[in-house]
Design a binder for these strands. Structure first.
Lengths: 253, 253
DNA sequence: CGTAGTTTTGAACTACTTCAAGGCGCGTGG
DNA sequence: CCACGCGCCTTGAAGTAGTTCAAAACTACG
């Protein structure tokens, strides 16, 4: 009963932007103080959803963009023949949904990987606000640009790096992002399955598994199911410096 | 002398947006007629550049965005260790430079692959105009979004498809894009080297070469150096339907 | 006509995939 | 509270697509 009472209390306690713990990671960080209130008033705060819940699906019309408050999601899209590609994993503070600006229709699906709470911002309002508040537009373009360059680096990773290097980079990147969000950068609780990691990194799930065990044998990691402790970050970073495939020639000369 | 005279004449003949042959592919297509003139006045039209010229380099501050009028370019970025990844090939009508919105600094370099003419639009002016003309913002987000989803598909292509399928898709895509621009969709003059194609598709250059010859032996293509004729588009499309690697499991269930 | 860059071809090698099977952990229902 | 069953994960062994190395053929261009 006490527990139930707490849940209700939590849901009622709509923390708005000025008070939010993620203030410094989220969109409002770029806004002048005066505008934050207006921004906050457009947002539906802290919607809770269980694991496996879809924020939206590929093909849905764009209605809102979302901000992850706690938890994590994966985004993926499917080709006509059913092949799926995980586009990315998103953590607290990430902005989601802008993939749909293309045609007003979402290009990929978003599923929660664990209990997750999100803030929801109706898209039309966001677009209006953009025109009044130049900084907001800038902030959003920044998010989009970051995602794009992330995608490019991932392509390089996948097409020019071996499996060990891919996983090392994946773990270091995740570690850094969790660190930015106030979690431990050495003790990671992976929210995604090996299959997800494999798909994301462009290798077979078995290869991911084997690589994990090899890392453990080398003393780089302590792995217990999805609980991963980074024992030797420097060692992981070393793997990172070994290009294994030929590099691009500049061509055109 | 006659020739020299013509060159001068060409450079003087600054065709502006309302008269441009690419009107329907370029940004102004989304603008109300009244705004096109204002847009056009901000643009430096039809700058000519030889093959191998850089529009900008990775790390350069963002000063302008560019629109390709004729010719083609490739964009690539380099990791710290020197590995390079070709991000994309751009043809007439493509908008270039928005990769820099992230931090005001370009995330990749752009080189011309042949004689190319571009229109240049100073970025600050573009941003100002965005706030007055909502449609322009929309048009730009659309471009960015398209590029993003193109990147995602490419990741799927690279991590889940075999070399033959990658090349087939590459050729069909190029064919379609050239077709949209009024060129022949069956007789392609590839502006990029085999190394470029290889890097873009995430395989070795030798593999690209071998795949080309196999396609020719199968009667799918007629290949003469960079001149490629598509003899059997349907056949190429068939290759496209053969996923060769395991597909993503949905995980999370 | 020679040089440099690009492309093709050949042959050996290997990192990763695929197939197959066993183990482990967790939630469910008895 | 324990046993059952289903996913998830790991491990092994065999196969292969693609890489790497090496060198020759071709093209363009001065």
């Amino acid at each position: 009963m006490n527990a139930e009472h707490n849940v209700v209390a939590l849901e009622r306690a709509t923390v708005t932007c000025p008070d939010c713990r993620l203030r410094d990671l989220c969109i409002p960080r770029g806004l002048p103080a005066a505008e934050v209130g207006e921004f906050a008033s457009m947002v539906r705060h802290g919607r809770l959803m269980p694991r496996g819940h879809y924020l939206y699906r590929q093909g849905d019309p764009l209605s809102s963009v979302f901000l992850i408050k706690t938890g994590s999601v994966k985004s993926y899209f499917a080709a006509e023949d059913g092949a799926e590609q995980i586009v990315g994993f998103h953590l607290a503070g990430d902005l989601i949904g802008l993939d749909a600006v293309e045609r007003g229709v979402h290009g990929c699906s978003i599923v929660t990987l664990e209990h997750t709470s999100v803030c929801e911002l109706p898209y039309p309002r966001m677009e209006q606000l953009c025109q009044r508040v130049p900084d907001l537009l800038h902030e959003i373009l920044l998010k989009v640009g970051t995602e794009m360059s992330r995608g490019h680096q991932l392509r390089l990773l996948i097409s020019q790096r071996g499996a060990e290097e891919r996983l090392a980079i994946f773990l270091l990147d995740l570690s850094a992002r969790l660190g930015e969000r106030g979690y431990s950068p050495t003790d990671l609780m992976l929210p995604m399955s090996r299959y997800d990691i494999a798909n994301y990194l462009g290798v077979a799930a078995e290869t991911v598994s084997r690589t994990f065990t090899r890392f453990e044998q080398q003393g780089l990691l302590a792995v217990d199911r999805r609980q991963v402790r980074i024992r030797d970050a420097a060692g992981l970073r070393t793997l990172t410096a070994h290009p294994q495939a030929a590099m691009a020639r500049s061509g055109t000369r």
